[in-house]
């Protein structure tokens, strides 16, 4: 059994049920447990700008925190698509244990209505977690529909 733990942030509990032709045990269960330790915590996992008027801009913050015992190097930060998202800083930086940093993400809604999606990707020097992705979304509305 193989589980990729990249999307887990706490406990993993998985059962595998196996059907057999054993008359005394037609269903056997294997259980796999683990506690995932999040070394680089990035919050929120999803940035939802909510309803935003056309041709407007809005800014949200993403917080990166080093919960591990050694330094974590953020090698790059990129926001895509560039027509929708931009970052105030994109320079690599180091987070020492316990340290955190806020990254401002700016969304430019553009002229099209509807849901828009993008992401911010952090690449790291962590052996098991070379990148961490934060999804971004917004609902672009006509000016009068947003209640603003």
């Amino acid at each position: 059994m193989k589980i990729s733990t990249g999307s887990y942030t706490n406990e993993i509990l998985k059962n595998i049920r196996v059907e057999t032709n054993d008359p005394e045990a037609d269903l056997v269960t294997f259980t796999l447990k683990a506690q995932v330790v999040e070394i680089l915590k990035v919050t929120p996992r999803l940035v939802n700008f909510g309803k935003i008027p056309q041709n407007d801009t809005s800014v949200r913050e993403i917080v990166c925190e080093n919960k591990g015992e050694g330094p974590v190097r953020i090698l790059s930060i990129e926001a895509k698509p560039p027509t929708l998202l931009s970052l105030r800083e994109q320079e690599p930086f180091v987070l020492n244990p316990g340290q955190s940093r806020k990254i401002a993400v700016k969304l430019s809604s553009g002229s099209s209505e509807g849901y828009v999606h993008g992401y911010v990707r952090f690449t790291t020097d962590l052996e098991f977690l070379p990148e961490k992705v934060v999804r971004v979304r917004a609902d672009v509305k006509k000016q009068q529909d947003t209640g603003q």
């Binding site: 589980i3 733990t5 993993i12 294997f30 098991f128």
Partner: peptide
Amino acid sequence: FDAGEIPQGKDL
């Protein structure tokens, strides 16, 4: 099977 603590991203 209890794998104990595992760093995020590492395959279990």
